[in-house]
Amino acid sequence: MAACAAPTKKVDYSAFKASKPRSIVVLPPLNKSLEVGATYGMLSQVTVPLAEAGYYVLPVTLVNETFQQNGLTVASDIHDVPVAKLRDIFSADAALYITITQYGTKYMVFDSVSIVAANARLVDLRSGQTLWTGYASASSNEGNNNGGSLVGMLMTAVVKQIINSSTDRSYGIAGTTSFRLLSAQPGGILYGPRSPSYGTD
């Protein structure tokens, strides 16, 4: 599941650089997949790449508990909260909105593959301006060579389906997707003020 080389997209960072966010509140991801556990499978993985990029990330359990105490338990309702209200409650500089577009394992005749894909939007809580948008995906079949005999492919498919059905294989894939989506890299978010690389990008 190593990162694949992809063409670097052209990104306008002028608003991001002018905003200089130091702290980020991560909202529970919107789940557009059919997998019930996708929201928390993804949410549990996103703070590490953001922290490693140099940002203070509000603890997701505290944020989630705050929303629940205020009667907000559905991600779509949380995403509709005005940015000024989020700023008042959490005192963060920016909010990260994530939408999961794929999460789970697809079973096919000769194979099964776990895929997690998501897009994200970083919004300035002072102005409501979008600072950055991104998309990333990861798959359990990256780098696999599916050549071989028919019997061998069938046996491999059976073993993978047993493993995938007894464990949440997508959880690990979500970690890879999170790092691809939220690590400071060309086309990704900029380094934050707690990074020694701050201001070099």
Rank of each mutant, 00 (worst) to 15 (best):
Y171F: 13
N144C: 07
L30G: 05
D93A: 04
V46A: 00
G41C: 05
A51H: 03
D201A: 08
A94I: 05
A51I: 04
A92T: 03
T8I: 14
D124I: 04
A51N: 10
S127H: 11
K32G: 11
C4G: 11
V46T: 02
A15S: 12
P59D: 15
I173F: 05
G192D: 07
N164K: 05
P59I: 03
Q102T: 12
M153K: 15
P21G: 03
L86Q: 12
A184T: 01
S183D: 08
L50D: 00
I100A: 01
F67H: 06
E35D: 14
D77H: 09
G143Y: 09
N70Q: 13
V109C: 06
A51L: 05
Q68P: 00
D88E: 14
P21W: 05
L72N: 06
N64A: 13
I78E: 01
V25Q: 02
I89C: 05
Q68V: 07
Y103H: 04
V25M: 09
G175F: 04
K17I: 11
L150N: 12
A157M: 10
G152V: 02
Y56Q: 11
C4V: 11
N145I: 08
S127A: 10
R87H: 15
F110N: 07
T133N: 14
F90G: 02
A38S: 11
V159M: 11
K17T: 12
Y171N: 12
L181Q: 01
S165E: 10
A53N: 11
S127M: 07
V74S: 07
A3Y: 14
V26L: 09
L125R: 01
F67W: 09
S19Y: 02
S170N: 08
A5H: 10
T200N: 12
G148S: 06
A157C: 03
G128K: 05
L181T: 00
T130M: 09
F90N: 02
M108Y: 13
A174E: 01
L122I: 07
L58Y: 12
S165C: 04
S197E: 15
A2V: 14
N64Q: 13
A117G: 07
G147S: 11
G143L: 06
A92C: 09
A136G: 04
S127V: 05
R169D: 14
V48C: 10
P82H: 02
R126G: 10
M42Q: 07
S44F: 05
C4D: 10
A3T: 15
G148R: 01
A138G: 02
S19C: 12
I163R: 09
L125W: 06
